[in-house]
């Protein structure tokens, strides 16, 4: 191993995830400066990330099958799913809105699930290629992950605002609950994944 590629772990050191202080690895100890639990790598990172990612993937099905809201106008309205909502925005000529909702509710969560599975599989296969690219993927997920919440906020805002009886009412559907669970699970999944594992296989000169 080249000296330039020394990691803290290889030197018997551990980096505090909360305050960045370097200390020596001991079993089961807390950061001497901030008191956070110290782990050289996030504990059970792969197992936890797999569980959370697969959970999100499973819940994404009911999130799309069940309606997320019903627009009742003049006493009539049909419950709509996420995709039907996007379609009705396109019908109304609201292209930019349709794009925002589609990206936040379909592209981001599905992209996150696919990328997480790719990261997990590549780490488990001890892949030494595309290290920088996989790091970029990880950072993109961290940065864009929470934007899927837009749809949840949108439904709660619309339901709270449009309450005019038979004239116009917007009611939330049970799909919101499932979609909210998907968003929370993907957020936890991305945080459970330890990006240092990507580089550990690169340092593995066997």
């Amino acid at each position: 191993m080249a000296v330039a590629d020394l990691t803290a772990k290889a030197c018997g050191l551990v980096h505090c995830h909360a305050c960045a202080l370097i200390s020596r690895i001991q079993d089961d100890h807390a950061c001497p400066r901030c008191g956070a639990a110290l782990h050289s790598r996030k504990p059970f990172s792969l197992q936890r990330t797999w569980a959370l990612t697969l959970g999100a993937a499973v819940l994404y099905v009911p999130a799309n099958v069940f309606p997320i809201m019903t627009v009742v106008r003049m006493g009539q309205g049909e419950p709509k799913t996420i995709l039907a909502g996007v379609a009705s925005l396109i019908d109304a000529g609201m292209w930019p809105l349709a794009m925002i909702v589609f990206i936040a509710s379909v592209v981001v969560p599905i992209g996150k699930i696919i990328f997480l599975i790719y990261l997990l599989v590549s780490v488990q296969r001890r892949s030494k290629t595309y290290l920088g690219e996989r790091m970029v993927l990880y950072r993109l997920m961290e940065y864009f992950g929470h934007w899927s919440m837009v749809d949840i906020f949108l439904v709660t805002l619309l339901a709270a605002l449009v309450k005019m009886g038979t004239l116009a009412t917007i009611e939330p559907g049970v799909g919101v609950s499932f979609f909210g669970a998907v968003v929370v699970l993907t957020l936890f999944a991305a945080r459970a994944f330890d990006p240092r594992l990507i580089w550990d296989s690169a340092n593995d000169h066997r």
């Binding site: 000296v3 990691t7 803290a8 050191l13 980096h15 580089w199």
Partner: peptide, 23 residues
């Protein structure tokens, strides 16, 4: 040029990368 820190060295002189653990 970075040599691995010895026991006597002050650890405050080092930082590790948050994302890839490089010292």
């Amino acid at each position: 040029s970075l040599t691995p820190p010895s026991l006597s060295q002050d650890l405050g002189k080092f930082v590790a990368c948050h994302d890839c653990d490089l010292l």
